[in-house]
């Protein structure tokens, strides 16, 4: 029998290497995530729950119609009523932190993949691999390097939430009509101008879809990250399951579904609305 391929050992060494030699980077990451998460959480606490609920309902009405607005009012109202508003705010802070950090990585990476064949051929298989790995495998190195609580949760979230917007940004830019790029080149635009003024605006709807998926992935992972001490609705579910409190667990589960549906419908609605406006202002005129 051939000896076992030392995949596990290699992973351990990689984690040890990062922990020892990239300490400053690790500390910076922890600091950034903690501050961002803290800021979001402070924002949620700065206004009373009803104000937020009504605010969300108004936004939902504007972007996704009255049905979703009423759904939001009832759903979030229920969470508040059940004493889960604090957990909801915690979950949302983590989701927003994870999404923001993911997008900061994903959009430039997606642009690089669209613009450079080399980057694309290197990144595509890595993204494939990241997306097929079972989700909570990522929790292990996250805990080993970053300890417990917010920072590893955000890191684990990023491993799951970076691939979709990266791909969609690259695809969106790749699908821009080459005739428009040619037209811009004919006017003497620089490569940078073409990217900023032509390609990114035209790829907007694809990128917005990426943002939507990024948010959904973040939510999914933030819930799972309760396994490594991330607070919020996931922690409530975990606690309820371990204490065999059926009602408590289902109520928190319903809360997660409420958040998922609100986030999904509102961002999709916003994307559709903005795209329509873009469509009228730029794409149509140029077509």
């Amino acid at each position: 029998m051939i000896t076992k391929i030392p995949i596990g050992g290699a992973a351990e060494q990689l984690v040890a290497f990062v922990g020892t030699y990239l300490k400053p980077l690790v500390i910076t990451f922890i600091w950034i995530t903690l501050s961002l998460n803290g800021a979001f959480f402070w924002l949620f606490q700065s206004l009373p729950a009803p104000a937020w609920i009504i605010g969300v309902a108004i936004v939902a009405w504007r972007f996704a119609g009255p049905g979703i607005a009423i759904f939001g009012l009832l759903g979030l109202g229920l969470l508040w009523n059940q004493g889960l508003w604090g957990a909801t705010a915690q979950t949302l802070s983590l989701v927003l932190t994870g999404t923001l950090m993911s997008l900061v990585v994903a959009i430039p990476l997606g642009i690089a993949m669209a613009e450079s064949r080399v980057v694309n051929s290197v990144m595509a298989p890595i993204l494939d691999f990241l997306q097929t790995m079972p989700r909570f495998v990522y929790l292990i190195p996250a805990v080993a390097i970053l300890g417990l609580d917010v920072a590893p949760a955000v890191f684990a979230t990023m491993t799951l939430a970076v691939p979709p917007p990266t791909r969609l940004t690259a695809v969106g830019i790749g699908q821009v009509d080459p005739r428009m790029v040619e037209a811009a080149e004919a006017f003497g635009s620089t490569r940078w101008q073409i990217l900023a003024k032509i390609k990114l605006p035209l790829a907007f709807s694809a990128i917005m879809l990426g943002v939507n998926q990024c948010l959904m992935m973040s939510l999914s992972m933030v819930i799972i990250a309760s396994l490594i001490g991330a607070g919020g609705l996931g922690a409530e579910i975990l606690k309820a399951i371990s204490e065999v409190k059926a009602g408590r667990g289902l109520v928190a589960g319903i809360g997660v579904v409420v958040l998922a549906i609100l986030i999904d419908r509102i961002t999709k609605g916003a994307a559709a609305r903005l795209t329509r406006r873009w469509g009228r202002d730029t794409v149509m005129q140029q077509a």
Binding site: F136, V137, I140, P141, V143, L227, I228
Partner: peptide, 26 residues
């Protein structure tokens, strides 16, 4: 199944075990 090994890796802080099981899932 394989997932159990990942969970064990997580609860025992055994990076190697968890990652190997993860690769096997892929």
């Amino acid at each position: 199944g394989l997932g159990t090994r990942v969970v064990e890796g997580l609860s025992q802080f055994d990076i190697g075990k968890g990652v190997e099981a993860g690769v096997a899932v892929v």
